[in-house]
Amino acid sequence: MNILVTGCSRGVGLEICRVLLEQGHTVYGVARSCPQEFKDLQTQYPGRLQYKSVDLSDSEHVRENVFGDFVTNKVQLDGFVNNAALAYDDIVSNINLDRLKGMYEVNVFSPMVMTKYAIRNMLLHHTKGSIVHISSISVHTGYKGLAMYASSKGALEAFSKNTAREWGSLGIRSNVVVPGFMPTAMSATLTDEQRAKIYARTSLKDATSVRSVAETVAYLLSEKAASITGQNIHVDNGTI
């Protein structure tokens, strides 16, 4: 399968690429930067991990930047994984409109535009494709400082549910993976005490496994998940 993955260079995105490559798929990854760990994966799987540097904060040009000369109509797209995201951590009384808009560009507007063109690619090739958005447990369990970030992920969950309903008759599926807190760069600003508190709110009393999140994404992209659409799959260690 040919899968487009955003935010591919680190954290969950990198792990999603790794799992998909292990399963024999070809990955078209976009991210702002291309760190050594990603380049190592490219070396390990020659020709199967394509990369383009794209800044998803520019939703106006996301179409030409991603679909113009990278994932063109010549590539039959089987899946789209919307993983790239920007965290904006502050309390509501401090909202800065420019930062809020900047986060929505990356977390909501670019993903919606990319979904549009992913579906168009699937229409052209009559592909029963699969779309997977990465959300956050903060949508379902409130955390201080995450109201703005959680709102952007909540928008994606609603978008996915309705995309599933709209395109289901053509066999195109859309689902969301809702990870719990993971030890990735996105949560790097948390103190150990904050982390311990967050993990204590989970049934398994630990950080969510990045590998488990990536494996779930790969599952939703696969034929094994042929009857799963419009769902939010929580991979969150049983967050209460």
Binding site: N73, R120, L123, L124, S169, L170
Partner: peptide
Amino acid sequence: SFDMAELTVRIED
């Protein structure tokens, strides 16, 4: 509307 979406995509291609 789905047929017209496909029509658009094919014409654009």
